[in-house]
Write a protein that binds this DNA or RNA. Structure first.
Lengths: 244, 244
DNA sequence: CGCCCGATTGACAGTTGTCAAGGAGCGTGG
DNA sequence: CCACGCTCCTTGACAACTGTCAATCGGGCG
């Protein structure tokens, strides 16, 4: 199955959230001309830090991580890419971090140079890109509070809450049913996200389970009986209120 | 001295680095029409989190901090604003964090609504804004590694290196002379930046001094005899190499 | 059925936080 | 001009949280 023969943009699951969200139909065709799809398996490295990157892309499905690694092996995940998130930076042909696929990832790639030209010539793309980077900047700053000031237990709760909120904003949850997270990350991945060790992650998950905040089903599924309590555990005052 | 009667944009110290950097003279006049200056003293709060903000602004001189505070008082500085940095977000009239002046700050403010219109109508402003947010995003992600994975000693060294690099890129240093930092931050401010306590900050500064990595002159001045050693202490592999 | 990888749990150590007691610089007022 | 007091900083002793090392567990796959 060649991945290049794929649906029209009009049918795309991320059409209204990705970098193309504000595009008019005629702008969309311009993007369509320079796009192609690529797939990655869990663990694949999509780009290495410093390597030339001849495309930018939207994540269509799956999850990817941006990670910085120190020479002695310490690693920090500095961002998670979920469907509709944007990878790469117009005006710069390399990134400062590795990007790796966590689950099966499919990317909608745009050839770099033509895309950069479109950013210049098509206001709606640049505008959306600006919105998205500012959202990411807010999220990154939010995460700095988690990394700098929260306890291990609060970090775990914060991560679960964040994933849940990003997923339910993608596809609004079936209210009523207990909230469920299928973690794409291993314990080590969680640890690298939260600036802890995998052992601490495991212990805190066990504690949260013991205290009834979460339930564990297998190794990768977390059930949240009470979202409010999770947010309480996350010590999150920002209740995701709408800003304008 | 009313601060509204101030120099022309052409004479502005941040003319070529701020949000107006890419503007042509005629675009500059559009900005000039909607700008005004404001001053803040150290400790002043420029905006409270969640409060309406009827302007966006460039920092002209001084330093400001973005900080998130938790209900129990834990605080994290999630960004430092230096001259030419941008404050606020077009398309959103409030911010999620307090912004406070660390030193004497002067802002070049633009009234929100007209500025947003200019972002739409004047490509060079939107483009520059995009560049700047992506730079900030990269910096924020860099900082996540500091907060998540570095030791107390490495964090101090990283902060000093960061301030030094941002200042020397503003005004290239007189090579030869020992590098000097006039810290605008108190020990507590440093701690809130680095996710530590002020006691740990003080101890690590003493240790770095004992080990000859830095010299302290008074409470706010740090001398760096050897920048390479500082970077070594920061465990920073990214040596600030130029990216394209 | 057994191996292998990821996860859990335990024991212990180390870094950093907490609490507390000085110490130094600076401005104000006598 | 000096003294006082205030704030910020430094340093010490101790505690707590998290990291390290190691053993065990358990599910999935050959």
């Amino acid at each position: 199955m060649t991945s290049t023969m794929l649906a029209e943009c009009a049918d795309c699951p991320i059409r209204h959230r990705a970098v193309c969200a504000l595009c008019e139909p005629h702008e969309l065709t311009l993007l369509e001309d320079i796009k192609y799809y690529r797939q990655f398996a869990p663990g694949d490295t999509i780009v290495w830090a410093g390597e030339k990157l001849d495309f930018v892309a939207s994540v269509v499905t799956g999850m990817a991580a941006l990670n910085r690694t120190m020479e002695d092996g310490r690693r920090q995940i500095t961002g998670l890419l979920l469907p509709s998130d944007f990878l790469g930076r117009p005006g710069r042909s390399s990134v400062r971090y590795d990007v790796s696929a966590i689950s099966d990832v499919s990317l909608c790639c745009f050839r770099r140079k033509p895309f950069e030209d479109l950013v210049e010539s098509t206001p709606h793309i640049g505008q959306r890109l600006l919105e998205m980077s500012m959202d990411e900047l807010d999220a990154a700053r939010e995460w700095m509070l988690v990394l700098g000031r929260k306890t291990a237990r609060e970090r775990i709760a914060s991560l679960l809450a964040m994933i849940l909120q990003r997923e339910t904003q993608a596809k609004p949850a079936d209210a009523g049913s207990a909230l469920r997270i299928d973690l794409p990350l291993s314990r080590e991945g969680i640890a690298d996200c939260l600036g802890m060790t995998l052992e601490t992650v495991s212990r805190q998950l066990s504690h949260l389970k013991r205290d009834g905040v979460i339930q564990l089903e297998g190794r990768r599924t977390v059930l949240i009986p009470d979202m409010d309590q999770l947010l309480l555990e996350a010590a999150d005052d920002a209740d995701g209120g709408v800003l304008d």
